[in-house]
């Protein structure tokens, strides 16, 4: 089967010009291949660069070297060197990302935040909202909050809105950065269910999951970043 993601020779370091040009190397010459239907959970001690790797895969961070081929429209696209418009297109249709924190937008209600990725791929407003509502209900967001902007929600509620948003569109590839942090047991179980459903439809998933139970429930493989550490 064609890989969904192929990371080759990836290196990332940060140069802090405001700190006298201090260079912080993170990882070096990292290789990782993820196939459809796989859930690769990233491992290694805190600071080894798990979030940095996920952010590089989303093209949010720009690597120092290497390539990240993402299967988009049946062809590999190097997200590191792709022009911005192509990255936007890959993110819209292929690459989903659940970050650690929800970025709220003033005045935009929770329901619309969740429906937005569906609207972006052309789903009708009513259908997108219905799917969004279904996800929010599954994640136990009270119905009365659907119409409110999440800026005032609790941390756990915001994270669940974020998860619903990430799972609204059936992306072929999902990047999950600690989706179960700050969730109670019942909601953790729901997220495990969502991940399993995504795997069943053939999604390729890369996740950071510190919760042992959640990890055991979904991981098909662990990938330890320690050997690539450049510290």
């Amino acid at each position: 089967m064609n890989p969904a993601i192929e990371v080759r020779n990836l290196s990332k370091e940060f140069t802090l010009h405001t700190q006298g040009g201090t260079v912080l190397p993170v990882f070096r010459n990292l290789d990782l291949t993820v196939s459809p239907g796989e859930c690769v959970v990233l491992g290694g001690p805190s600071g080894v660069g798990k979030s940095t790797l996920i952010r590089c895969m989303y093209a949010n961070y720009r690597p120092t070297g290497g390539t990240i081929a993402v299967r988009h429209d049946g062809r590999p696209a190097d997200i590191v060197s792709a022009p911005p418009r192509q990255v936007i297109d890959v993110r819209r249709r292929t690459l989903g990302y659940v970050s650690q924190f929800l970025r709220t937008i003033p005045r935009v209600p929770a329901l619309d935040i969740v429906a937005e990725p569906l609207r972006a791929v052309g789903v009708e407003a009513a259908e997108a909202r219905a799917r969004a509502a279904e996800l929010l209900r599954r994640l136990r967001i009270p119905e009365r909050l659907f119409g409110l902007p999440p800026a005032t929600f609790s941390g756990g509620e915001q994270q669940r809105v974020n998860i619903a948003r990430g799972f609204a569109h059936p992306y072929p590839i999902l990047l999950l950065d600690e989706p179960t942090a700050s969730l109670d047991a019942a909601n953790r179980e729901t997220v495990v269910g969502l991940v399993r459903e995504a795997l069943d439809r053939g999604a390729a998933i890369v996740a950071i999951l510190h919760d042992q139970d959640a990890r055991d429930a979904v991981a098909t493989r662990l990938f330890d970043l320690s050997p690539y550490s450049a510290m």
Partner: peptide, 13 residues
């Protein structure tokens, strides 16, 4: 760059 790239991983001093 993309807005989130420039703001989250700025390169130029």
């Amino acid at each position: 760059g993309l807005t989130d790239q420039v703001l989250d991983d700025p390169h130029h001093p």
